[in-house]
Simulated scan of single mutants.
Amino acid sequence: MTHSRLFSIRAVLLAAVGVTAFSMAAQAQVVSRESDIVSLRLGQRIQVDDGSCPTGQIKEVTGTTLTPDGVARSSKCVPRVVRK
């Protein structure tokens, strides 16, 4: 194989890995109780399906800021997205 052909194959494989990683990161983790969240990273979003939000919404817990005690959390109700 020529050098340019190998480069093209590597570029396609790298793009495929990037798209896969991005799509997996875009999917939020869903737990049934907020106490099920053991560790939360800065910027991470976890959805909590505990029934505390109105119909059609789900609680989203986000790691907002870094404090001396760890990552501070905030939560809000967001529209529930139906995944196929």
Rank of each mutant, 00 (worst) to 15 (best):
K84W: 10
S52M: 03
L66Y: 05
V71M: 04
R80N: 01
T20N: 11
A26K: 14
V38Y: 10
H3S: 12
S23R: 10
A25K: 14
K59N: 10
E34Q: 11
A21H: 09
V61C: 11
I58W: 03
Q44M: 06
V30G: 15
R45K: 14
S75M: 08
R41W: 02
S75C: 00
H3Y: 14
K76L: 03
P54V: 07
T67R: 03
L6T: 12
R45W: 00
G70S: 00
A11I: 11
V19N: 08
I58A: 02
P54E: 08
D36T: 05
R33E: 11
A15K: 03
G51H: 00
A15H: 05
P68C: 00
S8I: 12
R41K: 12
V38E: 14
V71P: 03
M24I: 11
S35W: 10
L42M: 01
R33M: 06
T62W: 03
S35H: 06
G43F: 03
R83H: 15
S35V: 13
A21N: 13
L13N: 13
S35P: 04
S39A: 09
V19F: 08
F7R: 15
S23H: 09
P79Q: 07
F7T: 13
L40S: 01
R41Y: 04
S4C: 07
V82C: 01
A26R: 15
A16Q: 09
P68A: 05
V19Q: 09
M24W: 08
I46S: 04
V17I: 15
T2I: 10
A11K: 15
T62H: 01
G51Y: 06
I37R: 10
A15R: 04
V30P: 08
G43C: 05
Q27R: 15
K84N: 11
A72K: 05
S32I: 04
Q57M: 13
D50V: 05
S74L: 00
P79T: 08
M1V: 13
Q27T: 11
S39P: 00
T2E: 15
T64S: 08
G18C: 14
I58H: 02
P54D: 06
L6C: 11
K76Y: 07
H3K: 15
V30S: 13
R73V: 03
L14V: 15
A16K: 03
T64Q: 12
A15F: 09
P68L: 02
Q29Y: 07
D69S: 02
R10Q: 12
C53N: 02
R73L: 07
S32H: 10
R5T: 14
M1E: 13
R41T: 06
L40I: 02
A16H: 02
R5F: 14
G56R: 01
K84S: 12
G18F: 12
P68R: 00
F22N: 10
T67G: 00
F22D: 10
A26G: 15
V82S: 09
V19T: 13
G56C: 03
G18R: 08
